[in-house]
Simulated assay, not measured.
Amino acid sequence: MARYERLYTSHKDNLKPGVYVIELPKDQVLRLPGPRTRKIEDASLPIRCKKHSSCLPWILRFLLFLIVLVVILVAILFLVFQPRIPKYSVEDIKVHEFNLSRELVVMDVIIRAKNPNKRIGIDYKNSNRLWVSHYETVMCRGSLPGFHQGHMNTSTLEARLTANGLHFPKELSSSIKDQQNDGDVHLNVGMDFPVTIKMGILKSMKFDFKVRCDLSVMRLLSNQTAGIQRGSCRLRI
């Protein structure tokens, strides 16, 4: 037999405060954790949480290390290869057919592309797009075959653009005629070139060169050059 002694205080009238001796069989003794044991177990829970939260500074330090490493690598690449932005210009536009009432437009657009970089080559992909528009109306479109442009290279490209599948609003003809009478026709030339950059043995992912040119030409007549008076091109990546 085992004895379990406990100070027991009851609110009932028939029980008085005191010490009671309860006898139970040895194999049926029930053991409950005392207040001191419960406090220890409860105190251990925040410790586990603190252990997990202590990992956060290490994760932040690791991420910061990666960011610093990437910045250092990019800085080294810039110092070694000294990248410069390619330059583009529209040299001429040869008009073969220009009949808006029949929706027949055929032009050859001659483009100069200059790669001023000493250690960087540019791969132009086949899936490129070129177009000529008058304000928001596209008059002809086409593409160029893909090619590789080496470092310190200037290439002259000629693209045949047509109006296949295009439809023109009635206002287009009158707008061009009015400007042509003044000898100052506004044109936009757009070029989207998917490219990859080669820096030695390194090769970049594919991304787009978006070239937009604003031109002023003298005329748009069949079998004549447009006569570019002024123009400027800008590159967006």
Rank of each mutant, 00 (worst) to 15 (best):
E5F: 07
Y8G: 12
Y8S: 12
T9I: 08
T9L: 12
T9P: 05
S10F: 12
K12H: 08
Y20S: 09
V21E: 06
P25D: 01
P35K: 15
R36K: 11
K39C: 04
E41S: 11
D42N: 11
D42Q: 14
L45Y: 14
I47Y: 08
R48Q: 11
P57D: 02
W58E: 05
I59T: 09
F62V: 13
L66A: 05
L69C: 09
I72N: 08
I72L: 05
V74L: 15
A75V: 10
I76G: 06
L77R: 05
V80G: 04
V80H: 07
P86Y: 02
K87R: 14
K87V: 03
D92R: 03
K94Q: 04
V95W: 05
E97M: 04
F98D: 01
N99A: 14
L100E: 00
R102W: 15
E103S: 14
V105G: 03
D108K: 05
I111W: 00
I111F: 01
R112G: 03
R112L: 11
R112K: 11
A113R: 09
A113E: 07
R119L: 12
G121W: 10
Y124N: 01
Y124W: 08
S127H: 14
R129P: 04
R129W: 09
W131N: 14
H134S: 03
E136V: 15
E136R: 12
C140I: 01
S143F: 09
P145H: 10
N153C: 03
L157A: 07
L157P: 00
L157H: 06
A159T: 05
R160W: 10
R160K: 13
T162S: 15
A163P: 02
A163N: 09
H167Y: 15
P169F: 09
K170H: 07
K170T: 13
K170S: 15
L172Y: 12
S173T: 02
S175F: 05
D178E: 13
Q180K: 13
Q180C: 12
G183F: 08
V185A: 08
V185E: 07
H186F: 07
M191I: 15
M191E: 10
K198I: 13
I201S: 13
S204K: 06
M205P: 01
D208V: 10
D208T: 10
F209C: 04
V211D: 00
V211L: 01
R212Y: 11
D214A: 06
S216I: 03
V217L: 02
M218C: 03
T225P: 12
A226G: 04
G227M: 00
G227R: 03
C233I: 06
R234G: 14
I237N: 02
